[in-house]
Design a protein around this nucleic acid. Sequence first.
DNA 1: TTAAATGCAAATTATTTGCAGAAGC
DNA 2: GCTTCTGCAAATAATTTGCATTTAA
Lengths: 157, 157
Amino acid sequence: MDPAVREKIYAFLDARRLRRTAQRDAIIEAAFSTTEHFTAEALLAQSRRNEPSVSRATVYRTLPLLVASGLLREMDFGQDFKYYDPNFIDKPHHNHLICLDCNKIVEFEDEHMEVLENCISHRLGFSPAVKSVRIEASCDELKILGICRKRKPRDAD
Amino acid sequence: MDPAVREKIYAFLDARRLRRTAQRDAIIEAAFSTTEHFTAEALLAQSRRNEPSVSRATVYRTLPLLVASGLLREMDFGQDFKYYDPNFIDKPHHNHLICLDCNKIVEFEDEHMEVLENCISHRLGFSPAVKSVRIEASCDELKILGICRKRKPRDAD
DNA sequence: TTAAATGCAAATTATTTGCAGAAGC
DNA sequence: GCTTCTGCAAATAATTTGCATTTAA
């Protein structure tokens, strides 16, 4: 976990007069030691490796805090549970392409997209806050080669 | 309800050997007689005005059929229930801007966005299927005038 | 000390499903 | 008549919450 991230998150906790607990530390550590998207359940499992006393309730109570801090983004991919994305710290404007074949999520950034979104928002009379592009797509390689190399090595499916 | 839409939906039912029932008719009529986004619960209420015997279960069983037909799009706006959007028939590539002030959903189309999404997908090695851009934004007018004229007249909030 | 945080278990809520009866073709 | 649909009510599953207890400051 990047020390700068740790510093930011604790500054946020301080500003809100939120206490530092073993459970919160464990959850924060688990959330920001990966670049993968994760679910609440996966975060619980990972947090418990750091601190076995972490309960599901505390994970669910901590997640909104991390989202409010701006360091974690809640993502809805149309499933019946939410994903959390810790990569907005490094790439504040990234978007998601979801592979219909292997279910993998490919992140991408594009400055033209960014400019275009701002343009459209202002044309409509709004100031954009949170922007997200989601593309569901099928893998070209899979069609040709029969395998999908976009599949990432460590897979939580 | 546009006769062409009615024709399409019944052609879809025929092709799948799905039966025509009073309840399905009522639900279809309710779904495609509006240009508003709606929830399953709202669709149930509206369907019952056409046919009081419609049950919640039938609405939930019919919605996936309408989505599969391509005439209705399931939308996830990050809330704990789904919205359904009947406007993809007329505007197959439209996107959504959600006003953070009045919660209204503004639909927009932009051909540059469309081109850019296709470009990015192919650059990443994918063929795009379902694309959605979602912009959460605050209303410029509200900030200046104190009111948000983007609020639509008929409001289900 | 004292307010905040926690774990547990029960509650909540949109959606799904099993089943017996009703209805389309 | 046979199969699909339906309503009902119970099941499901992610998330939230009440409460008694623990803990940070």
